[in-house]
Write a protein that binds this DNA or RNA. Structure first.
Lengths: 208, 208
DNA sequence: TCCTACATGGACCTTCTGGTCCAAGTCGAC
DNA sequence: GTCGACTTGGACCAGAAGGTCCATGTAGGA
């Protein structure tokens, strides 16, 4: 049931153009406001190409979810490379996110988080794709906390996975409030809250 | 341009049936998956009644946003009555939310938060309605923090409005993760994080 | 070079959807 | 009871959307 993979260089380029166009359009306008014809137009392809590489709209949307996940996680690569083994690293990560939202004037929200409300209740396979994306997103955070734990910088009762989930919740909620209020300060406040949670999990060396 | 208000008891009942049916359906399936005919069917009305009481789909959706806000905020009334002037109150509030999500098996997410991704980028008026709803939702939380501040239970540097926003972010993000992972433990973890933020804002009497 | 499988363009079909319209029914004030 | 305004039912319409099909073009291996 997976979409057909193109066998020529041309075909691969076409498939990519379709997927990227669809991903862009959906990030801009939302799932409901994007018709296949819009995707066809932006990707400069024809109906038959859409249906050659994707069985139907549903599968295209699932592929878009995967693609969006790649893009969002890819944007974090710089931070993931260095690892999250210190509070300073987390602060730098937060600063980047805030800067991104400020540049967008609080528009758009999280492309990945936004797909949850639009797909999760409607298509369980898409839901699973998004769940995996969030797992992959939290993993480097949790690894950072585990490192800090091993270095004895966090209280031993702290669960690194749960702390990562709590940080992700603050991030996603902060992006949602940023989007609905069109106010990038919201994500700053939310992430400051997340940093406060991390600080609270630290061994009481300095209350910083 | 606001929707017409019915002038007879029958008319009022019809309008209510339409609005409640639409609100239910959209909470269940999402905006895109609900057609006017679905609403017409569930509310046992006719097309002409839909268009008598609402100028069109867009205005109906805005009314649904308002109605959803009323329902979500109404569900909190019990907690708002008593006020949020202590940590124990916040814990009780969190417990109720977790219980609700557990009962739903993590399905559905937050009806209000879900509308953000579906409407905010598409209809600025609906976005404003939702923003107001979040303001109203945070207000009693902030009032609780202000009370605690006056009682000298929080550090004076704490901004009650920002703390309320941070808690709301944890709540919304936690609900999103609950929905995408179909796992009510996610909201528990997120709200424990929020409680940790509140604890961190307290005057260091007891680290409890 | 030729042949086959892949790629492309776009007409076409069916269904669904928001929206319009009007005729008939009901309610309440006088 | 009567009259006018409000309410209701549902047929109808135009356009959009997802999906199908086939004829044509192209590329790469034998």
């Amino acid at each position: 049931m997976p979409e057909l993979l193109p066998r020529t260089a041309n075909g691969r380029a076409t498939r990519r153009r379709i997927l990227d166009s669809a991903t862009e359009l959906i990030a801009e306008r939302g799932v409901a406001a994007v018709a296949l014809d819009d995707i066809r137009e932006r990707s400069r392809t024809s109906k038959s190409q859409l249906y050659l590489y994707f069985p139907g709209r549903r599968e295209l949307l699932q592929a878009v979810a995967r693609n969006t996940a790649c893009l969002v996680l890819g944007a974090q690569d710089g931070h993931v490379q260095g690892g999250f083994g210190s509070v300073a690293r987390f602060e730098a990560w937060c600063d980047d996110i805030v800067a991104g939202q400020t540049a967008l004037d609080g528009r758009g929200g999280c492309p990945l988080g936004g797909l949850v409300a639009q797909l999760a209740e409607h298509d369980d396979e898409a839901r699973a794709v998004l769940a995996q994306a969030f797992d992959a997103w939290e993993r480097p955070l949790a690894a950072g906390f585990r490192t800090m734990l091993e270095r004895d910088e966090l209280r031993p009762s702290v669960d690194p996975d749960e702390l990562a989930t709590a940080v992700m919740a603050s991030l996603q909620g902060g992006l949602l409030l940023t989007q609905v209020r069109r106010d990038p300060r919201q994500i700053r406040i939310a992430l400051d809250g997340a940093l406060a949670q991390i600080a609270a999990a630290r061994k009481s060396t300095a209350p910083a």
